[in-house]
Design a protein around this nucleic acid. Sequence first.
DNA 1: CGCATTTGCTCAATCGATGAAGCAAGATTT
DNA 2: AAATCTTGCTTCATCGATTGAGCAAATGCG
Lengths: 336, 336
Amino acid sequence: MKLDRQQKRTTIYDLAELAGTSASAVSAVLNGNWKKRRISKQLAEKITRIAEEQGYALNMQASLLRREKSHIIGMIVPKYDNRYFGSIVELFETMARDKGFFPLITCTRRDPALEIEAARAMLSYQVDCVIATGATDPDRVTELCAAAGVRTINLDLPGKLAPSIISDNFAGARELTRRILVSCQHRFGSMEPLMFVGGRGGDHNTMERLRGFRQAHADHGIDLDDDRVIACGYAPEKAQSALMERATSGLPFSKGMFVNSTITLEGVLRWVRLAGPVSEQEFALGCFDYDPLVALLGDNIEMVRQDVPAMLARMFELIEHGNFEPNVSEIPPVLR
Amino acid sequence: MKLDRQQKRTTIYDLAELAGTSASAVSAVLNGNWKKRRISKQLAEKITRIAEEQGYALNMQASLLRREKSHIIGMIVPKYDNRYFGSIVELFETMARDKGFFPLITCTRRDPALEIEAARAMLSYQVDCVIATGATDPDRVTELCAAAGVRTINLDLPGKLAPSIISDNFAGARELTRRILVSCQHRFGSMEPLMFVGGRGGDHNTMERLRGFRQAHADHGIDLDDDRVIACGYAPEKAQSALMERATSGLPFSKGMFVNSTITLEGVLRWVRLAGPVSEQEFALGCFDYDPLVALLGDNIEMVRQDVPAMLARMFELIEHGNFEPNVSEIPPVLR
DNA sequence: CGCATTTGCTCAATCGATGAAGCAAGATTT
DNA sequence: AAATCTTGCTTCATCGATTGAGCAAATGCG
């Protein structure tokens, strides 16, 4: 790995020499509190000019070593490659920067070991705060960080030891289920019980969505057997093979499906293509997630959009108020 | 912003005191070269145990300040929220970690000023190397980094001052155009010239794709006027309003369209929905980009998938060989 | 004019980890 | 027994920026 630096970097000592002053003055000028330190305007301007000429860049490592707060804010995300987490990350970066934080983001691919390793790395980089997004074990992260005196906030999936900001999964799922049922009525003339595809039985979001799913069936007086629920995980391959198996198993099968995420939807659609009927038009689908292209292309696919801007706004609110009591904020999702 | 640290962090000095030894020994043990420094196995084990008991986390800032290479590798990306850049970022992180780098990623939303600011921040964090992905002005980034002795590599869009890794846009566009023309033949019985929607006239990728687009028309002996090209930028809104305008302008209009990215496709589909004919089925579309859900849902949408794994493999190859000569590697994209 | 205050700086310690140099005790050689 | 080598540490300077303390010169005040 030939990444040898070409030349030595310019430091405040170099600038001090060039300006005929002290490193202390240079530091004061460049980090903006030259007024507080009673540096004359002329000297300040001279130093600023020389720094620009020399292309000086602050050494953050040195600066952070000395300061007590880093203003670095870490975020752990399970995946980048879907619109939900993509928009979380993108908006988080923007908002963090606006509020004077430096965002440090790590993707842990739903791997519990990687999550812990990533949290540890963030502690090493002296983050002031860690956001655990969709973490498989958020409380583990909170414990680890607490040991170093670093606060955490859970996003998307809740934990018991830190404040959590999640979607109102129950209400969202109930309304989504209602819409799928109505769509079934229109399309097929009847309201059969739906299938629930994707997610992990143990995770809070899946459990709450299932509760909403069941409630909506009850609202319409429809009996729902547990065997309509296929919580096979989020991965497309798992959903695909679970449906394949189900279709040939003799167990009940529905044309109406509640799909737990766009990731899972990919597997459902693959199954529709390969092993199922000709087109997804013969199904009534609903997805607890949002993707603009699916919204445009999937005529018969209802979508729930989690309100990312509201969730992140709430998150920064908690940070700014120093509120790190464990409690859950539920943010209503948006239905198109 | 109440992010006050709760307690003081454990340092090697604390550990040294607890172990009844020196900070130097602790450091040697914890960073793995205790053998080289002739520390006895017993002391090493004792220190390791105490460090674990205390939940010690290395202070990277202090460590990096002392070392000459940071092993931090920075990446600048225009957007997170589409599958192409999402997969670039996710795979980059994984590969960087595997190779012993610490990935530092920043999203600059195609804003030239933010790009420069992000590059400057990365220099402050002492990155060993910067990857400028889809940068609006990659050479500016290279110059800035070069002044600090930091090498750069361009990804997705080429620059003149650093090695660039891009898709073979010409060949990909030529083949994609051919497929759209064939699809038009099947669908509409004739081969009219296509429209080209999205991208910026000035950017290298758009220019090369246009060259492939023109070549494919020539291959089929089809005359192509310049007014079929609508390089209105990548944003959905721009594509949507450009099509709206075009449809009412009296200028020629085609049912076959070459769409420059999934981002632009979103605008095209919105236009189809709102102002155009009933369904996208009445069009023959091709998109120079890949999205698995579009591939599954859009029956009449041809897609080109840029070969992200091959591009990143090439990138790390360059880094490992210390090859920073400005030259362009073209990676063939994959057509489904 | 003499004393107090303000202005405009510099000095030096510090943050935590690293590693070259050095040193004492024990082992080995002559 | 003296000389040399090896083992297993410790000491201390260093990385670059920050900041409390301090100091000389300039200014204000009675």
